[in-house]
Design a binder for these strands. Structure first.
Length: 895
RNA sequence: GGGCGAAUAGCUCAGCUGGGAGAGCAUCGGCCUUACAAGCCGAGGGUCACAGGUUCGAGCCCUGUUUCGCCCACCA
């Protein structure tokens, strides 16, 4: 026995309850040691690859990650078992602003700022933070059972990826698709950086709308303008009105005296202005408002910045210089009021832009920023989706995707922080030449001077994540990994980053690889609490994946997430469901425990018996047919990303077919004296259990691996077993039909027992009246089994007979179940029930008779549908007949 | 304002191209029946939001209405 084998658990008697903690840790360690997650790149095999949506390196696992990674692992394990070359690339994102904030907070506790350290030392500090704490989320993913190829773990700031980032930046720059421009950006005065439009969150906020009188320069009157940010008036360089607004035509030559300043500003005429809003006059602050910026461009207005990058009023603000913007606002309002310029103040609710990282109110302001011209890149992405080279699941996202791509604006990629990929651009001190190169230049190529200063800005974090599908595979080098695994198979992510990330990966992948980055995109729902509320710490409704794992086990938690993952927009997470699936895992465990008791001494080769189903007993043929149908369903659901169906098909089969019926049914065989019966039962039991374990392994890797290791024979990991395939030889419609009758009879007899309140241990007598010869033979053949399942003695099966007055009675198909029950019948209750049944049947019959009497139905509906309706009619009539008989019989007992 | 989604059992939700309304939980009744009381056996419960339309046939397709949710753009 070699070392790895000795580490595997010895065979042992399974305990009554599944102890997930120990099992999970033991197997995960084993898988890591054996490197069973490592990607293979064998010739001639299909490839299946996924790149993980890299979580923020500062992140801790939340339920969204848990869902996301469970679904990925499900597919990865499925394809690995199918024998594909399978790769799941893990990694983390450097998350520029978030990470910088974390480290800055750390510094603050030492009463330091990043400026005390300086750029270089600060970045060193971030790296050492990453060394120390950056592995948190990775370890948490491992607890989830993620089967990533960990040797290939990447980080968006690591050497290879940084190289890719530079390469992309330089190429785009040289193609003219990156430019530097003066532009109005969303500025976060706290983070000191520009934010992309989609990094700004708009919250409805209660504020004030200030109406200010702007006097005409000739003193002949005034116009009232309104603003929510009065401090920006110091930067006003015009008042705009609609070109056709009669009220203001005369102001063309006059101008406005801007209150609180010495300046006179022009009136401009612009279509953007809504005549109906307020007075129809708009103050224009090109340096501090996006729309005003556009107006300023159209009318060539000066852009007067009155605030610095900390949100403090600057020298242009005159006597307000040095005041914080909100302090200044108060002061301005006060001064306006004192000087009679304030018309009125109204309460006003409006959307205020806030930084998505720190919730500071964003200030629109102009500055020099770097941009990507996205139009040509976006067009390629749209085309790829239109041509079906990328498929979106669920397909409701196409429309949204297209409309967003149509309206896309240039992407501001520079950020004024320190942590990130520094922009590879240098300016020559002597000639002003801008140099953009992959390798740091030593001298200016134009004038030869050696004094070059590098751009201080870093790139938006999404810039590097946009390259993730190919940068992680070695690009710009032409690696075997790229050849094998690019394009990746599917991207699984949350829909809230469809545009932040997914669209940009498509643009970059198409541009640099000339190929889509993934064939399919599966956008899963957002996880909310059970009432549909967003989970948040302040609401206190957060469900922590790690707590779930501790309490219910990873497999139960994974199963829950899978069961919830229907193709929709939201998932309402209910902890009770996790507990329910924990019971299910335990049920599986106990089924295995039962199997183990009977399979202890068998040879694994006994399963050969199951390969010739024709020779097997009915229940065996039935369960093989059922597992086969389940295999078909599960595979189809996996291939179509219908994850909830993967879970429900497995659940239904294991609990309600395999455990409830099959295991009960074969107990007689397993305890029988007949060796053939015993062997058949053992063979099929082992066969089906093996199939079940393999089928469920992708969802519940731990428990399936543990049970697998305890089955007869020497077994290596289930992870690399072949995933179950449909076996036509197992299909058996006849066995299913027969079993349906037998199960129906058993259920019917049980119902009679229960309703008559016969004690479960008491035996009943039963007579089955069955006019059909074949069914009679079937019932006779399995009479022993049926008797055992319903605890009956004196079991008779007859072609015809009369029902005694005081008997329990039921009808299953065309078989009448009769149980003599002297004095045990609840006559009134039964009559009520019969009446209710009659009501339903009458209604149904009327519907069907109407349908069948309709010529159009007969002519238009498919023949099989018509035939079905006819059968139904006959059945209902038969039932009504029996219903009438029973009613008559019971009515007699009444008196 | 534009777009999207949801409305099905008491609760949470499935129901994929139109052809007999389902699950889990909860509720009620009964059981330690030799894998599992973390279990077993059984029962009750729905005008599929509303109103029209298409169709032989609608939970499903079309139109409108109501309620709720989300996203985008925001009128200063």
């Amino acid at each position: 026995m070699n070392e790895t084998e000795s580490k595997r658990p010895e065979k042992y008697d399974l305990p009554k309850a599944y102890e997930f903690n120990e099992v999970e840790q033991r197997w995960y360690t084993h898988w890591l040691e054996e490197k069973t997650f490592s990607a293979q790149m064998e010739e001639g095999k299909d490839s299946f690859s996924i790149v993980i949506p890299p979580p923020n390196v500062t992140g801790v696992l939340h339920i969204g990650h848990a869902l996301n990674n469970t679904l990925q692992d499900l597919l990865v394990r499925y394809h690995r078992m199918k024998g594909d070359n399978t790769l799941w690339v893990p990694g983390t994102d450097h998350a520029g602003i978030a990470t910088q904030n974390v480290v800055e907070r750390q510094l603050a506790s030492e009463k330091l700022t990043r400026h005390d350290l300086g750029r270089e030392k600060f970045i060193e500090r971030v790296w050492s933070w990453r060394e120390e704490k950056g592995g948190t989320i990775i370890n948490q993913l491992k607890r989830m059972g993620a089967s990533c190829d960990w040797d290939r773990e990447r980080f968006t700031m690591d050497e290879g990826l940084s190289k890719a980032v530079r390469e992309v930046f330089v190429r785009l720059y040289k193609e003219g698709l990156i430019y530097k421009g003066d532009y109005i950006v969303n500025w976060c005065p706290r983070c000191h950086t520009a934010l992309a439009d989609d990094e700004v969150e708009h919250d409805p906020t209660d504020g004030k709308l200030y109406h200010i009188r702007y006097p005409y320069a000739d003193g002949s009157g005034y116009v009232v303008v309104a603003t929510t940010r009065p401090e920006t008036m110091l930067g006003d360089t015009a008042v705009a009105v609609h070109p056709e607004d009669e009220r203001y035509q005369h102001l063309k030559e006059i101008g406005i005296n801007l209150p609180l300043t010495e300046r006179t500003i022009p009136v401009v005429f612009d279509h953007h202005v809504q005549r109906e809003f307020g007075t129809g006059a708009l103050k224009v602050t090109p340096a501090h408002d996006r729309d005003d910026y556009e107006i300023g461009l159209r009318h060539d207005l000066p852009r007067l910045k009155v605030m610095d990058d900390k949100g403090v009023m600057n020298a242009e603000a005159g006597k307000y210089a040095g005041l914080d913007r909100f302090v200044c606002r108060k002061q301005i309002v006060k001064d306006l009021e004192e000087q009679g310029f304030l018309d009125k103040i109204e309460d006003y609710q409006h959307a205020v832009g806030k930084c998505y990282r720190c919730a500071t109110v964003v200030e629109p302001t102009t500055s020099k920023q770097w941009f990507v011209s996205v139009r040509p890149l976006a067009d390629k992405a749209v085309a790829a989706v239109q041509e079906g080279r990328v498929n979106l699941y669920p397909n409701t996202w196409y429309r949204t995707f297209y409309s967003w791509m149509e309206n896309i604006r240039d992407w501001c990629i520079s950020r004024q922080i320190w942590w990130g990929h520094r922009i590879p651009a240098w300016t020559c001190a002597s000639c002003g030449e801008v140099i953009v190169e992959v390798d740091d230049p030593a001298t200016c190529p134009k004038c030869g001077a050696s004094e070059l200063t590098q751009e201080t800005d870093v790139l938006d974090t999404w810039f590097s994540s946009a390259l993730w599908p190919f940068s992680t595979l070695g690009w710009p080098d032409q690696t075997k990994e790229l050849a094998t695994f690019y394009p990746t198979s599917v991207l699984i992510t949350s829909f809230d980053i469809l545009f932040f990330w997914v669209a940009r990966m498509m643009m970059m992948g198409l541009h640099f690889m000339d190929e889509v980055p993934f064939h399919d995109v599966y956008l899963h729902a957002l996880v909310r609490d059970k009432h549909g509320k967003k989970m948040s710490k302040s609401t206190g409704n957060v469900i922590d994946p790690l707590v779930m794992i501790e309490q219910y086990g990873t497999d139960a938690f994974r199963f829950t997430l899978t069961a919830f993952a229907a193709q929709g927009r939201e998932i309402r997470m209910d902890e009770e469901r996790v507990d329910g699936y924990r019971r299910f895992i335990n049920k599986l465990w106990n089924a295995a425990r039962f199997a183990q008791m009977h399979l202890k001494d068998v040879e694994p080769s006994i399963v050969e018996l199951a390969k010739e189903p024709a020779k097997l007993g009915l229940a065996h043929r039935w369960i093989l047919s059922r597992i086969n149908a389940t295999i078909k369903d599960v595979r189809a659901a996996l291939d179509g990303y219908n994850f909830n169906e993967v879970a429900s098909a497995s659940y239904q089969f294991v609990w309600h077919e395999f455990c409830d019926w099959y295991l009960e049914w074969i107990k007689a065989d397993l305890f029988s004296d007949d060796a053939t019966a015993r062997d058949q039962a053992k063979a099929v039991l082992l066969t089906v259990l093996e199939q079940v374990l393999k089928l469920m392994h992708p969802i519940t890797p731990f428990v399936t691996e543990e049970i697998w290791s305890q089955l007869p024979g020497t077994r290596s990991t289930i992870m690399l077993e072949a995933f179950p395939e449909e076996n036509a030889a197992w299909n058996d419609a006849e066995a299913e039909e027969s079993m349906n009758l037998l199960m129906g009879v058993i259920s019917g007899l049980r119902t009679i027992r229960t309703e008559a309140e016969v004690h479960p241990s008491a035996k009943i007598e039963a007579m089955l009246i069955c006019p059909d010869q074949a069914k009679r033979n079937l019932l006779t053949e399995f009479a022993g089994g049926v008797q055992a399942m319903v605890r009956a003695s004196n079991f008779s099966i007859v072609a015809e007979g009369t029902v005694p007055d005081d008997a329990g009675h039921a009808l299953v198909q065309d078989v009448e179940l009769v149980v003599p029950l002297k004095g045990l019948i609840d006559v009134e209750g039964e009559l009520e029930k019969l009446a209710r049944e009659k009501g339903k049947l009458d209604k149904e019959l009327a519907r069907i008779v109407g349908k069948l009497g309709n010529e159009k139905f007969i002519n238009n509906a498919p023949a099989e549908v018509v035939a079905k309706e006819r059968d139904k009619e006959a059945e209902i009539r038969a039932r009504l007949g029996k219903n009438a008989e029973s009613t008559e019989r019971l009515s007699k007992l009444r008196c």
